[in-house]
C-alpha cells in the first residue's frame, strides 16, 4: 500500500467516524428534546392512521434527512481531496483510485447512493409540501413514496455496483 492510499483510507476513517458521531449527536439530542423517536410507532404507522403516528414518520424522515445530508457532505470533502490529486499528478490519482473498486469501497458507495437518493427525494417532498400546502396525512403518503423509491433505487444501484464482486 502506498503512502497516498494510506492517507486516503485514513481520510475515509475520519469521514466515517464523523458521520457516526453526528448521527449520535442528532439522536441523543432527540431523546433529550422530545423523548426521542418512537421506533414502534413508526413500524405501526404505515398501517395505522392516527395523526400521531404520521408525525412519527415525518420525525424519522427529518432525522434521516439531516444525517444523510451530513454524510454526503463529509464524503464530498474527502472526494474533493482525492479528485484534487488528479490535478497534482494523474499517477497519484490512479493509486488512490485503485482502492475505489475494492469490495469495501463498493459497499460504501451503496451507502452513499442511499444517502443521496433519500436526501434528494425527501428534499423534493419538502418542496412539494410547501408549494402544494400539503397536510400531515398527504405528507405521510408522500413519505411512503419517497421510501419506496429510495429502497428501489438503492437496491437496483447496489446490484450494479456490487455485481463485479460476485461475478468478476
Amino acid at each position: 500500500m502506498t503512502a497516498v492510499q494510506f492517507a486516503f483510507l485514513a481520510g475515509l476513517t475520519v469521514v466515517s467516524a464523523a458521520i457516526v458521531a453526528f448521527t449520535a449527536l442528532v439522536l441523543l439530542s432527540a431523546r433529550r428534546i422530545d423523548g426521542g423517536p418512537h421506533l414502534l410507532a413508526v413500524l405501526r404507522a404505515r398501517l395505522g392512521r392516527s395523526p400521531y403516528d404520521l408525525a412519527e414518520g415525518n420525525r424519522w424522515a427529518f432525522y434521516v434527512h439531516r444525517i444523510t445530508g451530513f454524510a454526503v457532505f463529509a464524503f464530498l470533502a474527502l472526494h474533493l481531496l482525492d479528485v484534487g490529486l488528479y490535478a497534482l499528478s494523474p499517477a497519484l490519482f490512479d493509486e488512490v483510485h485503485a482502492l475505489y473498486s475494492t469490495p469495501l469501497m463498493r459497499v460504501f458507495e451503496c451507502g452513499l447512493l442511499f444517502a443521496l437518493l433519500f436526501h434528494a427525494l425527501n428534499g423534493l417532498r419538502l418542496l412539494v409540501i410547501d408549494l402544494a400546502d400539503v397536510g400531515a396525512r398527504a405528507a405521510g403518503r408522500l413519505l411512503d413514496g419517497v421510501g419506496v423509491l429510495t429502497f428501489a433505487g438503492t437496491a437496483a444501484g447496489s446490484a450494479v455496483i456490487l455485481w463485479p464482486v460476485f461475478a468478476p
Binding site: 422530545d34 395523526p51 400521531y52 404520521l54 408525525a55 415525518n58 400531515a136 405528507a139
Partner: peptide, 10 residues
C-alpha cells in the same frame, strides 16, 4: 420548522 408535523398531530 423542519416539517415534522408533531405540533398539529398533538
Amino acid at each position: 420548522c423542519h416539517y415534522i408535523y408533531g405540533c398539529s398531530s398533538a
